[in-house]
Amino acid sequence: MSSPRRHARTEARRSHRALAVVGVLVLLLAAGGFGAAWWFQHQLDSNIERLGDPFAEVENSPAPEEETEAVNLLVLGSDSRISAGDPSQWEAGAQRTDAIMLVHLPANRKSAQVVSIPRDSWVDIPGHGQAKINAAFSYGGPSLMIQTVQDLTGVRIDHFVVTDFESFTAMTDALDGVRIRVPEDIGDGKTVSFHKGVHMMSGEEALKYTRQRHGLVNGDFGRVQRQQNWMRAILAKVNNNRNDVGMMSDFFTTVSKSVAADDGFTIDRMRNLYMSARGLSTNDVDFMTAPYSGTGRSDDGQSIVVLDRERFDPLMKAIAKDEAGSYVEEHTDDLEVLPATVK
C-alpha cells in the first residue's frame, strides 16, 4: 500500500489552517505570565470557547494530572470550532481537521516537543475500522479524536484544544510581523517572491512563504517545515516582547478568540503551566513531523500517508514515559526534526 516517499497532495488552504495552531501553543505557554492582572485573565478566559468534558466518553481517561507531572495536549486545527463546542450544532461528517499536533511538556519543564501528525495518516478509528486520522473528528468529535490518538500513540492526553483559522494573519500582525530567515531565493521558477536573507514578514507574507511549493524536495512535507518555522518565529517574537504590554494584549486577545478548550483547561491552569515552564526558550522547543515512510493508496483508492511504525512507536513510547527530550536528542538523525535553517 505504501510507496517511496513522495509529495502528498493537499489543498493550499491547509497551510492557512495549520498555522493558527501556533497561537494555541503560545497562549498556553505564555499567556499566564502576561495575564498577571485578574481582569485580563478573566477577559481571555471569557473569550475561550468551552467544549465541556470530552474525556467523559473516552475509555481509560486520564486522572487530573499533578502540577509536577508531564502534560500532553492534543491541539487540532479545524474548519469549525463552534460546532465542536456546541453538541446541538454537531453534524456527523461536517467537521474537518486539517492540523493535528501532540504537544508534550515534560515534568522537568526543561523542554517541549511538538509532533505534527499528518491528517491523512491511515490509522484505526474505534468503531469505524481504518481511515484517515482526521476522520475521527468528523465521525465522533473531540471524544473520538482523543480516543483515536491515545490508541495510536499510547500517550495519555490531558487537555484538548481546537482552533479556527480566521484570525491567524492578525496574530502575526499583532506582533508587528515575525522574522524569518530565507536561505535561498524563493519563487515559482519565474518570479522571486523572497530573496535570500532575513525578512520581517507580515501575516500575508508569511502565508505566501509557506504556500510556495516550487523547489521543495519533499513537496507538502517541506511546506510543513516552513509552517513550523513560522511557528518558531512567532514563539521567538513573543519571548522577546513579553514586556510590551500593548503588543501582548492585542496578541493574546486575538488568540483567545480563536480557541476552544476542554472545561478543565482553565486560564488558571494555563497560568500554572506557564509558571512551571517559564524558563523555556525557543531553542528548547522541538518541532517535528510524525515519522512516515511515504504516501500510498488505501484499498478504496484514497491518497494516504503511511506512518513508519518502526520510528513512530519508539518516539511515542518516549513521550508516554516522559523521556522525549533525551530521546529526540539521541535520535535526531532518525526523526523529522525541524532544522535550524529551513529551505
Rank of each mutant, 00 (worst) to 15 (best):
216 L>C: 10
226 R>Q: 04
238 V>L: 04
197 G>M: 05
200 M>D: 15
233 A>W: 03
225 Q>V: 02
230 W>H: 10
231 M>Y: 07
208 K>Q: 13
223 R>K: 15
197 G>S: 10
212 Q>N: 15
240 N>W: 02
199 H>A: 12
232 R>V: 08
209 Y>A: 11
201 M>K: 03
217 V>T: 15
228 Q>H: 14
228 Q>G: 01
240 N>K: 15
213 R>Y: 05
204 E>L: 12
231 M>L: 08
223 R>Q: 13
229 N>M: 09
234 I>R: 03
218 N>L: 06
203 G>M: 10
203 G>H: 07
210 T>M: 14
204 E>A: 15
198 V>K: 12
224 V>F: 07
230 W>C: 04
241 N>Y: 02
224 V>M: 10
224 V>H: 06
223 R>C: 03
243 N>V: 03
205 E>P: 00
218 N>K: 06
239 N>W: 11
239 N>I: 05
231 M>E: 05
214 H>W: 15
197 G>E: 08
233 A>F: 03
228 Q>N: 08
236 A>G: 12
238 V>F: 03
225 Q>S: 13
220 D>N: 12
209 Y>D: 06
221 F>I: 00
216 L>F: 05
209 Y>Q: 11
208 K>Y: 04
201 M>F: 10
215 G>M: 11
239 N>K: 14
209 Y>R: 13
222 G>D: 12
222 G>A: 09
221 F>Q: 01
219 G>N: 04
206 A>H: 01
221 F>H: 04
218 N>T: 09
201 M>T: 11
198 V>T: 15
206 A>L: 14
236 A>H: 11
226 R>Y: 01
232 R>W: 06
230 W>I: 11
200 M>Y: 11
243 N>K: 13
209 Y>L: 14
235 L>I: 15
242 R>E: 14
240 N>S: 15
213 R>N: 11
216 L>G: 05
197 G>C: 07
210 T>A: 10
200 M>G: 11
227 Q>R: 12
218 N>I: 00
206 A>S: 14
222 G>K: 02
242 R>W: 13
221 F>P: 06
197 G>V: 07
238 V>C: 03
205 E>I: 12
208 K>W: 04
238 V>N: 02
217 V>N: 12
209 Y>M: 11
228 Q>L: 12
204 E>C: 09
230 W>D: 03
206 A>Q: 05
215 G>T: 06
237 K>G: 04
231 M>F: 10
